[in-house]
Design a protein around this nucleic acid. Structure first.
Lengths: 344, 344
DNA sequence: TTGTATGCGTTATCAT
DNA sequence: ATGATAACGCATACAA
């Protein structure tokens, strides 16, 4: 070992932990400890290292960390469609929160397909993410529990807790109840319902809320008033046409999501019905767009951005070895101009 | 070296390249070579290794690869808002294409803010992505060129090519020209325009197209017919109100994107104007939703998913050391029901 | 064509 | 509290 090495030129190439150690006159381990808060170090060394990090613009290499068994500072996020209008806001909430904490998000899409979701989860694990946030999806609870045994997991859309697994449920059931109550309160006795595909957890819960609220008011649900959609505009359009063609009587329509409500609104217009003069219409999700449809759509609002942010926060808490506080984000009804008192 | 090792238990823990080599009876380097196609190996060894990989379910560790200076098999994607309705489809195109080629996408958001975009680019480089796809944004060309010197870069929204840099431009200018031509052809002489924010590249190009088409038909542009929006519904709404309040005469409105067109349509409706009977309305982007507004919106369509897919393909080509073929995705006008012949 | 040896940047184990 | 040292899993120069 040569005694006198030339004074370290400031960050010629990419600086490493070793270079920081050298410049601060400490061992690499000490630098690592300071970086990770793994152990206490004396104040003076701490200062020297911090100075060196600053001077060399040092940033730990995620790959090296990963290899050495440390944190990768990245969180996997299993979403269903990267361009989902609904979950999109949640992604933003997650991204913002993680970024503020030096974590990077690795987004993958499961396309509402169990097999694909499984593959993506495996990919995330392979990539050694520090934790996984699952936005709803169709994975069986066991799969999540199983994953949670190895990695912190936060999941939305279910009520399922265990050590290492934290869930934030959507208020789907209460959401549709709110909507039905609103319509009932305005004198609508016959409320049609456009459901999402029933193999979809959100769809199931929302339909349940519709039934429950009706039942609680002692109104019997008419099968002829329920049509199936696909959670897209096209499905809402078709479902509405079907409802119209069936000859069933109704003065209001509740769609299981806003996109289907948009489609239904078009079908209604085409058939010569005015909204809300002839038929009242309510959506679910309160997409940003819903305040600007014609007429603006009454819709059930879920604080999706906040849910994403809370999910990310919960993940950080889990990562810190603590238990996140239960998160309950209530749905609320945003009344706009697509609903009015029944004239019948 | 012991002669008889117990028959390798199939993938007890995570299998490594070393384990594959051992099982196949070759050296680790040979396995690596086969994995990367770095050199030719004899057919028999090749087969043995492939068999072992299969049997052990071996998947190379991205972190280790990265550390050793190899590919990370991940591509950074700089988008502006992870939940953008417009670019969302491009993200899907990118994701699909990359996934089919064993690459993972690392999405980051720049929020149309040069500084933030710079930070995100740095983050991507830190994470040792193999290449970066930039969806438009405000980064100066030099920044991209600079990055391209170190990493393959594919960028949308500009016309800028150099070794290691491939660009796919949107057809913004021709897009608005198409829309104006359509309106002109229907007898509309006074066409109002709702522009996006002018510090936004897309907005600038689209406005230019509007001006150019008008000029080419020897119609002089009236400043009073141009209002500024923010590329969101709210901005379109306000801009439309402003246009209405100004007392300017026009029989058609062209909005620089669909979201503003939605807002404009609401403002029009509120003011008692019918679309298209009183005023024709054209949007830009042809978001999936536009086929279902009331009335369905005539809009300029850009094949966004395809652009995303092409960008990803171009990246793969670049990664393979080749030059991607020039990609020209033409815009087209989708005529729906928000436009009709002028009655004046 | 194939194998050996070395290093990538960090964390963890074990000393001290 | 701090330092030396050994992995982590892979790619690659070098040797054969």
């Amino acid at each position: 070992m040569t005694l006198a090495s030339p004074p370290a030129p400031v960050a010629t190439r990419k600086s490493t932990l070793g270079m920081v150690a050298q410049r601060a006159g400490v061992s690499p381990s000490t630098v690592s400890r300071i970086l990770n808060g793994t152990a206490r170090v004396s104040a003076d060394k701490q200062a020297a290292v911090l100075e060196a990090i600053e001077a060399l613009h040092f940033r730990p290499d995620p790959a090296a960390r990963s290899l050495a068994g440390g944190r990768t500072m990245s969180i996997g996020v299993l979403t269903q469609f990267i361009d989902s209008p609904f979950y999109g806001e949640a992604l933003r909430g997650i991204e913002d929160t993680l970024r503020d904490n030096q974590y990077a998000a690795l987004f993958v899409s499961g396309h509402w397909n169990v097999v694909e979701e499984g593959h993506r989860m495996a990919l995330l694990e392979e990539r050694k993410v520090d934790g996984i946030i699952v936005l709803t999806g169709k994975l069986p609870d066991e799969a999540l529990l199983d994953m949670a045994a190895r990695l912190p997991v936060v999941v939305t859309g279910r009520d399922l807790n265990s050590p290492g697994l934290f869930s934030i449920d959507f208020d789907n059931l209460e959401g549709t109840r709110l909507a039905v109550r609103h319509l009932l309160g305005m004198g609508h006795q016959n409320i049609a319902y456009i459901s999402g595909p029933l193999d979809h957890p959100d769809a199931l819960q929302r339909l349940e809320g519709y039934k429950l609220e009706l039942a609680s008011k002692r109104i019997d649900m008419q099968d002829a008033l329920v049509a199936m959609g696909d959670f897209q505009e096209a499905g809402g359009f078709q479902a509405m046409n079907q409802l119209l063609a069936s000859g069933a009587r109704f003065s209001a329509v509740l769609a299981a999501n806003d996109q289907m409500a948009y489609g239904a609104r078009l079908a209604l217009g085409r058939a010569g019905f005015r909204v809300p003069e002839d038929i009242s219409l309510v959506g679910f999700d309160d997409l940003p767009h819903s305040a600007f449809t014609f007429p603006p759509l009454t819709s059930v609002r879920q604080p999706v951005y906040e849910i994403g942010a809370k999910a990310a926060q919960a993940m950080l808490t889990l990562l810190a070895g603590q238990t996140p506080p239960p998160a309950n984000l209530a749905a609320e009804l945003v009344v706009r101009e697509s609903t009015r008192r029944s004239m019948r």
